[in-house]
Amino acid sequence: MLRFTLNRLAQSIAVVFLVFTITFFMIRLTDGDPFASPKAMPPDVRKVLVERYGLDKPLPVQYFTTMGSYLKGDLLPSMSYQGMWNTKIIKDAFPISLIIGVAALGVALALGLPAGIIAAVKKNTWLDFGPMSLALIGICLPTFVMGPLLIMLFGLKWRLLNVAGWFEKTDWILPAVTMGLIYGAYIARMTRGGMLEVLNQDYIRTARAKGVPGWKVVMGHALRGGLLPVVAFLGPALAGITTGSFIIEKIFNLPGLGQHFVSSVFNRDYSLILALVVLYAAVLVVVNFLTDILIAWLNPKVRLS
């Protein structure tokens, strides 16, 4: 287990380093630069800015100085938000995305897992068709339809929650439910598929022949194997959920991280793009590592290899 962990740690560092390098050079290949704007900028102002951010230096020098500050934990100042440091931008926005993401995941699991399990156990009955039809609708409905629908009901009609914004302690609920419903629909269908496959296995028949009661067969013998596909899906999906969704943030007017992903690219904000992409890569790597550990815990066959 220790070797496995160290191995994965080395791999993770290599991945983040590669992402850093590729992103650093690729953003400089795009047209335009952080200070290109529709309004012509006086040449001397531009010169001062370019010098301040070190963009006048040769590319290899820029690369190594940037890497040097990243290694010290300094993510450099933003090039489009004057006077803002990338670390501060992330510190302000990431917790919001994280809260909403984790809550959405909770909603998704709380809805998807029981629905999928019941549908698989009660295959081809109304307890299967009903939830699975709803899940299909959930998958087909885009967030920008589901979100406003929920806003109309809970925000305007019943006036229970704020329509948008990030002011009150309850403002995470609507965005989290919107995201959670859609991910929950995926999870429900995946759980059903995984459980159906496992419930047909010989060892389930063995458990029944031993006199294990019906629900105990499902929870004690079938669940572990049935959840494997869901866990494999959730790992990578979790990185996307917790680093914020641009659409959700636009609909609910949230100061989350997702908006920065989009606006930093439009602004050609070299340093903010780099900081965000490296953060995303780091989150993804951590989450994948946790997923692997969870899968190894669920499946003893994986533990050996």
Binding site: D202, Y203, R208, A209, K210, G211, V212, N299, P300
Partner: peptide
Amino acid sequence: QKVRGSRISMIFQDPMTSLNPF
């Protein structure tokens, strides 16, 4: 259920798939 595995037990054809791998 009280009879199965207590007063009447079964063994099956394929031992490779009849035990729970998890």
